[in-house]
Each structure stands twice: as C-alpha cells, then as structure tokens.
Computed example of a mutant assay.
Amino acid sequence: YGVTADEAHRFGLPCGGTLELVVEPLTEASTLAEVLDATSAGKTVRRTLDIVTGEATLHEASVLAGTSFDGRYLESVFGPRLRLVLIGAG
C-alpha cells in the first residue's frame, strides 16, 4: 500500500506511508489457543514470532508493553491494557 497518494488515501494512510504485513500459517505451534486462554482469564501476554523459523513463544507481559518488530522478531501484546492513568496529590 502507499505507492501513490490516491492508494495511500484509499487505504487510510493519510501520511502516504507504507504498511508491512506478516502472513503466518495457522498451525498447532502458533500458540493462538494459549493466547485466547490467557486473555479470557484477564492476563496480558506477549507473543514473539520468529519470522525466519516460524516459531512462536508466549510470555507474561506488562500492561505497558507494546508491539515491536526488529526485522526478525515480531512481538505482539494481547490482553487488558492501561487506558488511563490518573495521578493525584491532593
């Protein structure tokens, strides 16, 4: 997406940027059932996908964690997240 300004606008990329997609086959090793179980239990988990090997691992995560990709590992966070933090001193 994003080759021309018209295409970028059509797909909701007003900045004219680009979008990378990761397509992963759904297998038993995908750990998606475990992600579903954890989020149903109210846990926040980080799923790390190795783009080279296709191996996925699952770990507990902080509610402050975010998605990241370094070219090989795609880390996605699932589950409850902080939406608003109020700090008062009075």
Results as ranks from 00 to 15, higher is better:
residue 28 E to G: 02
residue 49 L to N: 03
residue 62 S to M: 00
residue 52 V to C: 00
residue 47 R to Q: 12
residue 82 L to F: 11
residue 26 L to P: 02
residue 56 A to Y: 00
residue 7 E to R: 02
residue 27 T to F: 01
residue 80 P to T: 01
residue 38 A to V: 05
residue 58 L to P: 02
residue 29 A to R: 08
residue 18 T to W: 11
residue 65 A to Y: 04
residue 40 S to H: 11
residue 88 G to R: 09
residue 17 G to D: 11
residue 72 R to C: 03
residue 30 S to Q: 08
residue 87 I to F: 05
residue 80 P to N: 06
residue 81 R to C: 08
residue 78 F to V: 02
residue 54 G to C: 11
residue 13 L to T: 07
residue 42 G to A: 04
residue 62 S to T: 14
residue 2 G to Q: 00
residue 1 Y to A: 15
residue 57 T to K: 13
residue 17 G to H: 07
residue 47 R to N: 03
residue 69 F to A: 02
residue 34 E to Y: 00
residue 49 L to M: 07
residue 74 L to P: 09
residue 86 L to C: 11
residue 34 E to T: 00
residue 1 Y to K: 13
residue 27 T to N: 09
residue 39 T to M: 10
residue 81 R to G: 12
residue 22 V to W: 12
residue 23 V to R: 09
residue 56 A to S: 15
residue 44 T to L: 09
residue 13 L to G: 03
residue 28 E to M: 07
residue 14 P to Q: 09
residue 71 G to D: 11
residue 8 A to V: 01
residue 33 A to T: 13
residue 6 D to H: 02
residue 26 L to H: 11
residue 37 D to I: 00
residue 74 L to M: 07
residue 82 L to H: 10
residue 42 G to F: 01
residue 53 T to N: 06
residue 79 G to W: 04
residue 4 T to Q: 05
residue 57 T to G: 03
residue 83 R to I: 14
residue 5 A to K: 09
residue 63 V to S: 12
residue 39 T to V: 14
residue 13 L to Q: 05
residue 4 T to C: 04
residue 52 V to L: 06
residue 66 G to M: 00
residue 84 L to W: 12
residue 82 L to R: 08
residue 83 R to M: 12
residue 30 S to T: 07
residue 90 G to Y: 03
residue 50 D to F: 00
residue 35 V to L: 08
residue 30 S to W: 03
residue 79 G to Q: 02
residue 1 Y to C: 08
residue 24 E to G: 07
residue 46 R to S: 12
residue 53 T to R: 06
residue 32 L to V: 05
residue 75 E to H: 07
residue 67 T to N: 05
residue 60 E to R: 04
residue 76 S to C: 07
residue 29 A to H: 08
residue 38 A to Q: 09
residue 47 R to H: 03
residue 68 S to Y: 05
residue 69 F to N: 14
residue 31 T to Q: 11
residue 39 T to G: 02
residue 76 S to F: 00
residue 61 A to M: 04
residue 7 E to K: 06
residue 45 V to Q: 04
residue 49 L to P: 10
residue 7 E to T: 12
residue 29 A to W: 01
residue 42 G to C: 07
residue 44 T to F: 01
residue 49 L to W: 01
residue 44 T to A: 03
residue 15 C to M: 05
residue 47 R to W: 02
residue 57 T to H: 06
residue 24 E to V: 11
residue 51 I to E: 11
residue 90 G to W: 04
residue 15 C to Y: 10
residue 16 G to A: 06
residue 45 V to M: 07
residue 26 L to I: 14
residue 90 G to V: 13
residue 11 F to Q: 14
residue 55 E to N: 10
residue 82 L to P: 05
residue 72 R to G: 09
residue 48 T to F: 01
residue 29 A to N: 11
residue 86 L to S: 14
residue 6 D to R: 03
residue 60 E to N: 13
residue 26 L to S: 12
residue 36 L to F: 06
residue 60 E to F: 00
residue 23 V to Y: 14
residue 69 F to E: 05
residue 10 R to L: 15
residue 12 G to C: 08
residue 89 A to Y: 14
residue 86 L to M: 10
residue 81 R to Q: 13
residue 19 L to V: 15
residue 88 G to E: 10
residue 23 V to A: 13
residue 59 H to E: 15
residue 29 A to Q: 08
residue 60 E to Q: 12
